[in-house]
Simulated assay, not measured.
Amino acid sequence: MANLPQSFSLNAPFGGPNACSTSANPNPNRDPKMASAEQLVLDLSNPELRENALLDLSKKREIFQDLAPLLWHSFGTIAALLQEIISIYPVLSPPTLSAGASNRVCNALALLQCVASHPDTRTLFLNAHIPLYLYPFLNTTSKTRQFEYLRLTSLGVIGALVKVDDTEVISFLLSTEIIPLCLRTMEMGSELSKTVATFIVQKILLDDVGLRYICATAERFFAVGRVLGTMVASLAEQPSARLLKHIIRCYLRLSDNARACEALKNCLPDMLRDATFNNCLREDPTTRRWLQQLIHNVSGGNRVGALQAGALDLM
């Protein structure tokens, strides 16, 4: 509550005379941007004003200081955002989501990403299990623009959670279906969705809890390895340096686990061992070093591995 502007009253009836003091008690010292944000947040709980408020807040969320605490602690606001999300569940299957409805719910998701990103609201966001409301969107398979936009924006919320290294976040996500949902997107999404989903898996793997979880059973390891291998094969035809970077980092992290490293000796794609991606990685020395270290780890430091890794130095 301490992060809320003093003028924003949570005790008054919603929409009542004291709900927002902007008009009743003008204060020349108040930040006009936050005054605008407060009014837009109030508008979210009015069905007739919500669509415009969603659009304005999502566009301006970067300029509103402490918007996340304002959204979280104001009466009825998170419920209104969840209502927007739940309202489109019926059009997910069969896929009949319109472009307008997709844009509207994505604006609501953008505000939830703001809440997920803020240090004062991230834990509250997790404790309320709000990411689970997004999972039906990640479980869709339609490749139309409106569904792809919906998946990408939902992944952005999860990506905001994992961006800050926090074992609590990773542990929560691992208690849900996030890994198979990300793997699904990594297989069938657009390049950008694949990149964000792979980034999420990468951040999970970089946490010790996440690495242990993925490598705890052969089923989990090979599920991740199969999808990574499929993506490598597709990138040989349509290269993407950004996506390849995250894939290589996932493989490198897997090689930190002894059992996984042993398995990678047999299942690491040959295209990562030869010159297939030389041109793709020519301008990315960091990823080239990761790939060199990966080959070294998987080869066990033998002469063949040293020659393969050394070839990358010639790029």
Rank of each mutant, 00 (worst) to 15 (best):
R61Q: 13
S45H: 11
V209L: 11
M34I: 13
C280K: 01
V304F: 00
L192G: 10
P136K: 04
V209S: 15
G159H: 04
L307V: 00
S175A: 09
M271Q: 08
M315V: 15
L81R: 00
A80P: 04
N139P: 05
M34F: 02
P28R: 08
N52S: 13
L161S: 02
T123D: 10
S240C: 09
A233R: 15
L174I: 05
G300E: 00
K163Q: 13
A37V: 13
L307T: 01
I130E: 01
A19T: 08
I179W: 02
F222V: 10
P119W: 09
K245H: 13
A223R: 07
F277P: 04
L124R: 11
L252S: 12
R289T: 08
C280Q: 08
L264Q: 06
S175F: 01
V196I: 12
V105G: 12
D56R: 12
L55K: 11
E48Y: 09
Y135H: 03
M231N: 13
I248M: 04
L174C: 07
V201L: 08
A258I: 10
F137Q: 04
L252T: 06
L134D: 02
I78D: 08
A216N: 04
E168C: 14
Q6I: 13
S175Y: 03
R253T: 06
N279V: 04
L82Q: 07
V298R: 00
R289K: 06
I247F: 01
M1G: 14
D208G: 01
